[in-house]
Design a protein around this nucleic acid. Structure first.
Lengths: 113, 113, 113, 113
DNA sequence: GTGGTCTAGACCACC
DNA sequence: GTGGTCTAGACCACA
């Protein structure tokens, strides 16, 4: 996996996992890889994966069965959509519109409306 | 000026200056404030401003006349537009579109097309 | 390490590192000292080393693995040779030849040909 | 006149003048331009020219007749040759040879011997 | 542990 | 006056 320069790796992995849930590549209640396994797959320190998992656990997108592993929460997909929609509409969209205006890019040029 | 938590101050100032150039509040070939002056205006250490100016000089958006000060490059506005358009269309837009698709947000809901 | 008066320390260190790579004292993909470590070795502030490393990273002679350290780029040696050869042949050599001509110094006097 | 980035302007002008004397474009005992005149010709602050002239006066390459102007010293050419030869052979040549060796450039490639 | 950013303050060369 | 470099020391996020 390739990482963006200026965003924490653990957050990028976190987003990647959310995408897997949104596309239903990972399904509700499914067990996800252990920190060591995912770490070695991605070429990343297991501590970093642990941090990702903690972060997702705080958001109640995954949960931990001690001694067993981490599992996708059963309402994970809905939760992600709710969180990300709110964040997108509230924080990101205004910045996008502002930037497009300054750069003279019209929505009709880049979106199919 | 108020600063966002998780982005370096020197970059935020840099973006702020680019906006000033885009809106033509600062014009081509115009002298911009000295590092000390801008620093005290913004309540920021002159070294931090220096860093901003180095960054903008690398992008050839401003240039330095030794012993005199920094000046807006004469093609600064075009350069900023070119750099930011390219970055937006190439890097940001695909992510935005993907995210909107995954979240089920239609362009027509949020943009005036 | 001893430093020349009229050239910035961070650049002198940078040149020193390039020599280490050229002579293969530091090899491709090898980890180089942390900013603190090299700083204390050379009796120089870590910030100054940081500046050196930023400079070399811009030239893509070293690169950074986050949280781990800086590494010699795998094509660093070739890159240095290319950059320095070009600079020497294009910028320095003409001046040298001109100066030798004006001063009446013949190449055969000072070089083994 | 165009100036190199990292060398003081007053020294670059100084070298330029030495060249004029070496090529005998400016001859012994000839009056040279006033600081204001040369300054406006080169697009440079007169103070900077003054510094150049002071520097050359210290080297006894030019001298000042008060109220009249600056003049090329009558043995200026010999003096410049002596100073620059020594400096070239002692300081610059060893660095040049070192660099050429490291970069694998042979004298016979670049000099007519 | 690593780099990265920031501050405060100093000193310098240069214009 | 200007920028440029350097130090000392702090704090932080990240791996």
């Amino acid at each position: 996996m390739e990482f963006n320069e200026h965003k924490p790796i653990y957050l990028q992995i976190s987003e990647n996992i959310c995408e897997k849930v949104l596309t239903e590549e990972w399904q509700a209640d499914e067990r996800i890889p252990s920190v060591r396994e995912l770490g070695s797959n991605l070429g990343v320190n297991p501590n970093t994966i642990m941090r990702t998992y903690e972060h997702l656990e705080n958001l109640e997108i995954i949960n931990n069965k001690r001694g067993v592993g981490f599992f996708v929460a059963n309402d994970a997909r809905e939760k992600i959509i709710r969180i990300q929609r709110e964040q997108f509409l509230k924080d990101e969209l205004p910045l996008i519109i502002r930037k497009m205006t300054l750069l003279g890019i019209k929505p009709s040029e880049v979106f199919e409306c």
